[in-house]
């Protein structure tokens, strides 16, 4: 039996500024053996420790095919996240993981795929989009909708650029408040749904973002006639242990950190509180 709460050390290989308050950290485990055997799935998360400050959960933001180096994208919002932003390349983080369940992937081959992401909700979806795009021909239509507050608040700008150039996927983005350079659509992400054509019976929708956005997206999808188990979302709760023990993330008798964070709407609907 091991100490569940003892993090392993990971080295920060690279830090990329995404927006004014968001950075992507590329990490690998300091222990070579651990690094070699490490693997994760799309949708899972880690608990990251800044020693002396605390620990917080972050979804994997990179392709699970290259687990020997992985990304987390972090928005500075409180104590731990600000402390992470103050770190430099070559510094250490404590990491526990992979934790949580994962997105269905094999189960949705042959289907049309719709991603709807808002703001900092894109990183976890990216860990699914990338392996799917590696196997692009196994899926039908492939649509990604992304909304952010302002053009500058979009994460992964170079990647978004390559996505918009690809012809085998439909990538649309929108912002709430445009700036002088913005030529794309303006409005919340749900307004993009009017611009796409879907076969709801063969589409699986994945959504991730702020709770309010998720609520509206799900409402719209249901309105379009989506079956409840064709809507896949993530739930976020204040988390501490990540291993189903501290009780913070419990909704009903489900523990988001163990039974989630990925749920179909059918499952979400059954939870006694929302």
């Amino acid at each position: 039996m091991e100490n569940l709460y003892l993090p392993d050390l990971a080295l920060i290989d690279r830090i990329v500024d995404e927006t004014s308050d968001t950075k992507t950290f590329t990490l690998h485990f300091a222990n070579k053996a651990l690094n070699r055997r490490f693997s994760f799935k799309s949708g899972q998360f880690v608990e990251a420790t800044v020693f002396g400050v605390g620990e917080a959960p972050f979804g994997f933001a990179s392709n699970p095919h290259t687990p020997q180096q992985f990304d987390i994208t972090v928005r500075a919002i409180g104590a731990v996240t600000h402390a992470m932003h103050a770190l430099k390349e070559g510094d250490y983080l404590g990491i526990r993981g992979p934790l949580g369940n994962s997105f269905p992937l094999e189960e949705v081959t042959d289907q049309d795929i719709l991603f709807i992401a808002g703001g900092i909700g894109l990183p976890p979806l990216k860990s699914l989009i990338e392996p799917m795009l590696d196997r692009r021909d196994e899926f039908g239509q492939f649509i990604i909708l992304y909304g952010a507050r302002t053009p500058a608040d979009r994460v992964y700008k170079p990647l978004l650029e390559t996505w918009s150039k690809r012809t085998d996927i439909q990538f649309l983005q929108t912002v709430d408040t445009p700036d002088a350079t913005w030529q794309g659509p303006v409005g919340v992400v749900t307004t993009l749904m009017e611009k796409i054509k879907l076969d709801i019976n063969r589409t699986v929708a994945f959504t991730c973002g702020p709770p309010v956005m998720i609520r509206f997206v799900i409402q719209d999808l249901l309105g379009m006639g989506f079956a409840e188990d064709r809507i896949i979302s993530t739930l976020e709760r204040y988390m501490k242990c990540g291993v189903g023990k501290c009780g913070h993330c419990a909704i009903g008798h489900k523990y988001i950190c163990v039974d989630g964070p990925v749920f179909s709407y059918r499952q979400i609907k059954r939870l006694p509180e929302r």
């Binding site: 020693f51 400050v53 605390g54 620990e55 501490k240 501290c246 009780g247 913070h248």
Partner: peptide, 25 residues
């Protein structure tokens, strides 16, 4: 009841401890 919270208690010399303490829903 088993719920707990977790917090770090750093000391000036860079050492520190992570604790868990009883929390309440």
């Amino acid at each position: 009841c088993t719920c707990f919270d977790v917090y770090d208690c750093p000391q000036e010399d860079g050492q520190g401890t992570r604790y868990r303490c009883w929390d309440s829903c």
